[in-house]
């Protein structure tokens, strides 16, 4: 428990550094530190599936973000503060904390789940699905429809990224540009 509190403080400090630092690269690295903290947290809470996924995705995102930021020396950020947005977000944060306090009081104690639905899965999961990894039996059998939706979301976002980020269009050989598409000055 002490280790988790220490990790929580570490992650909070990392997140604050990621927001407040002037350098994009150190911001990215702080985000990476927060992500690895999350993965250690998952491991301590007994969720190795989530921990593996978190580590792997974190590495990938770090590579992509560092690849994206390392060439841009975008360090000179002007002092710029939107007072209205700040006040609004503070108000919403306060509202969120208030309602979260009310909601969390109704929840069962941390580490003691109600086990209404999951008891069924834990008792009959292996014999009904044959998978010894209970997470997989939930993700791909009991809740496979959710997984299909998640796969669809990933698919759509990747298609969108391909379409938006492609700088050369897929044209036939002789075809010519009829209209200039994209951000002006970028070509």
């Amino acid at each position: 428990m002490l280790l988790m509190i220490f990790l929580l403080i570490f992650m909070n400090i990392g997140a604050i550094i990621a927001i407040e630092t002037k350098y994009l690269l150190s911001s990215v690295i702080s985000i990476g530190a927060v992500g690895f903290g999350v993965s250690i947290m998952f491991l301590l809470l007994g969720a190795p599936d989530l921990a593996i996924t978190q580590v792997v995705v974190e590495i990938l995102i770090l590579i992509i973000l560092i690849r994206g930021t390392i060439r841009l020396d975008n360090t000179a950020i002007e002092k710029y503060r939107d007072t209205f947005a700040m006040v609004a977000s503070l108000i919403f944060f306060g509202l969120f904390l208030t309602f979260a306090y009310v909601a969390f009081k109704a929840l069962p104690e941390f580490g003691h789940p109600l086990m209404r639905v999951s008891r069924e899965y834990l008792q009959h999961g292996v014999e009904r699905t044959g998978a010894t990894n209970i997470v997989m039996s939930v993700v791909l059998d009991y809740r496979a429809y959710d997984t299909l939706g998640e796969a669809t979301v990933l698919f759509t976002s990747i298609v969108g990224a391909f379409v938006v980020l492609r700088s050369q269009g897929r044209k036939k050989v002789g075809e010519e540009d009829t209209t200039q598409v994209g951000i002006p000055g970028d070509f």
């Binding site: 992509i64 002007e78 990747i158 990224a161 700088s167």
Partner: peptide, 18 residues
Amino acid sequence: GVFVALAIFGKAIVGGDR
């Protein structure tokens, strides 16, 4: 594919400041 799209196709990935 999304790495290829971000790192190769993309012109300005993190363009602009705040």
